[in-house]
Amino acid sequence: MSNSNLFLKSGFVRAPLQNGVGRYVCQLQRIVLKFCKSHGGSRGMRDFIEQDLVDFARDNPSVVVYLKPRRHRSPVVVAEYLNGDRVWMSMQNKTQSEITKWIENMRTQQGDLSAVRLRKYQYTDHPSIQGPWTPFTFKNPELNVAKLPNPKFGANDRLPMSATEQLRIMFEKQRISKEEVKEEKKEE
């Protein structure tokens, strides 16, 4: 695919600080929930805070949750990650279940994944284990000391005998040669 949208940066798969090789560290650092106590657009947010927030905070002790009740402001969630990314998301007019899903999504991400288009879906430090191909890999070592031109190395034997060649040889074998014709004539 072409890099048609030049505003969306492209990058490769990376994990901060070799996460997963040693112990696994949850990448979400803190989450700030800003909402209005009375306005209608914050209804889902208020329901989430009343019902699901305490469970979320208890299940994820490594995430610091801040609540900011602000009058006449639309509800917003800001997630900050260990690599410095800040993800701002508006929760205006979202239902409680939608908010739960988005917050769960923010918890399991390792940064702002929507900002980077992944070019490849794999990353490896060792692309070749059995050794990458070099022109020397399948070369016959006898070529080092051979005196060229050599009939053995110059022979035309790269491809197997084709069907046409086989037919031609069969024809030549069964062909009556000039000497045989002369002998037959002599006998006659």
Binding site: R23, V25, C26, Q29, R30, P61, S62, V64, Y66, K68
Partner: peptide
């Protein structure tokens, strides 16, 4: 920032590293 609680941050830091 207004939303900052050092005690909570330290607690979360310890929990994050298990």
């Amino acid at each position: 920032f207004l939303e900052w609680n050092l005690e909570a941050e330290l607690y979360a830091f310890g929990k994050r590293l298990n």
